[in-house]
Computed example of a mutant assay.
Amino acid sequence: MRLGLALRAFWKAMFDRQVAERVALALDGVDLASQSVAESTPAVVGKEPVGGAPRESAQSDAVTLLAALQRDARLVDLIHENLDQYADDQVGAAARPCLKQCRQTLDRLLGIVPLVEVGDGQVLPVDASTSSARLRWVGESSGASQGKVVHHGWVATQVQLPAWSGSADDALVIAPAQVQAP
Rank of each mutant, 00 (worst) to 15 (best):
P42D: 10
A43R: 15
P49W: 07
V50R: 14
V50E: 08
G51V: 06
G52I: 08
A53F: 08
A53M: 11
A53V: 13
P54Y: 08
P54R: 14
R55Q: 14
E56P: 12
E56M: 07
E56D: 07
S57D: 11
A58T: 11
Q59K: 14
D61M: 06
D61E: 11
V63P: 03
V63Y: 03
T64Y: 01
T64G: 00
L65N: 06
L65M: 10
L66Y: 03
L66M: 09
A68D: 02
L69W: 02
R71E: 14
R71F: 03
R71G: 09
D72E: 15
D72C: 02
D72Y: 01
A73S: 05
R74W: 00
L75E: 04
L75V: 09
V76R: 10
V76Y: 03
D77P: 04
L78F: 15
L78R: 03
L78C: 03
I79L: 15
E81K: 13
E81P: 05
E81H: 10
N82G: 07
L83P: 01
L83T: 12
D84Q: 13
Q85H: 06
Y86D: 11
A87T: 08
A87N: 08
A87K: 14
D88C: 06
D89V: 12
V91Y: 06
G92T: 12
G92W: 04
A93D: 10
A93G: 12
A93M: 10
A94M: 15
A94L: 13
A94K: 15
A95G: 02
R96A: 12
R96F: 04
R96P: 00
P97G: 07
C98W: 01
L99D: 00
L99G: 00
K100R: 14
C102Y: 02
C102L: 04
R103E: 07
R103M: 03
Q104T: 13
Q104M: 11
T105P: 05
L106C: 07
R108D: 11
R108Y: 02
P114S: 02
E117N: 10
E117Q: 11
V118A: 03
G119M: 06
D120L: 01
G121L: 04
G121R: 09
G121V: 07
Q122E: 14
Q122G: 01
V123Y: 02
P125W: 03
V126H: 05
V126L: 15
D127T: 04
D127K: 12
